[in-house]
């Protein structure tokens, strides 16, 4: 995959993480065990790689050529989302305690829920509203790339249901709406016709 080489807050880049997925090489492997941002990025990159390989063809996905604008857009958004972001408060049992979730943890959750549904890749995920204020209404905006041949309405309903359940279970956000938008429809790569053998001199 051709990946914009811009760093996450921890100093690593998506390029480095993609190389790690391909080769297992990274200068400080112990960092991956202690960095939730890198772990979220790796999970999304793995899914993108599977999707790209399956539907664009292995060579094209590896080279980042051809009709991969959608993939570049996803990677650009991923770079923005794999950072802690805002602090989302949780109710403490004991006065004086401060309990919270990072915005990055929740957008990674949304992305993982979307990526778990066949035929969908989450392109962009934003939490609109003041997530730092308990009870404030929040709208979850998700842009999707959907693979050609998968019923969009059925997939959108399924995703909305999964997201509502996951957010109710794992956050204390007041989710007022989940807005889904399909930004890309991906067509599988056409079968390559057999190459005629070149005549021998």
């Amino acid at each position: 995959m051709s990946i914009p080489d811009r760093n996450l807050e921890c100093g690593h880049s998506l390029e480095e993480l993609s190389t790690y997925l391909d080769t297992g090489d990274i200068p400080d492997p112990h960092h991956l065990a202690e960095c939730p941002d890198c772990q979220a990025a790796l999970a999304s990159l793995r899914n993108l790689k599977v999707l790209g390989t399956e539907f664009l063809g292995e060579e094209i996905a590896a080279a980042g050529k051809g009709t991969d604008d959608w993939m570049q857009a996803i990677l650009d958004n991923l770079r923005l989302e794999v950072r802690p972001g805002r602090t989302i408060p949780l109710r403490p049992e004991h006065p004086g305690d401060t309990l919270s979730e990072t915005e990055g943890a929740i957008t990674a959750l949304v992305r993982a829920v979307g990526d778990s549904i066949p035929g969908i890749a989450v392109g962009k995920c934003r939490l609109r509203g003041d997530v730092t204020v308990p009870g404030a209404p929040v709208t979850v905006e998700v842009q999707l790339a959907v693979l050609y041949g998968h019923p969009m309405l059925g997939r959108a309903d399924e995703l909305r249901e999964h997201l509502a359940a996951a957010l109710a279970r794992h956050t204390e956000l007041n989710v007022a709406a989940i807005d889904l938008a399909v930004s890309d429809v991906l067509q599988p790569r056409p079968a390559t016709p057999p190459t005629p053998e070149e005549p021998q001199p």
């Binding site: 939730p36 403490p92 309990l99 919270s100 979730e101 990072t102 943890a105």
Partner: peptide, 27 residues
């Protein structure tokens, strides 16, 4: 998150503590 705060407080009793726990990943 609340269970972690409670476990820390139980462990440190009778020391008076405030606990700051942040969920950074859900997997």
């Amino acid at each position: 998150c609340r269970d972690v705060a409670a476990a820390v407080r139980r462990h440190l009793d009778p020391l008076t503590v405030t606990v700051n726990v942040q969920v950074a990943a859900i997997s």
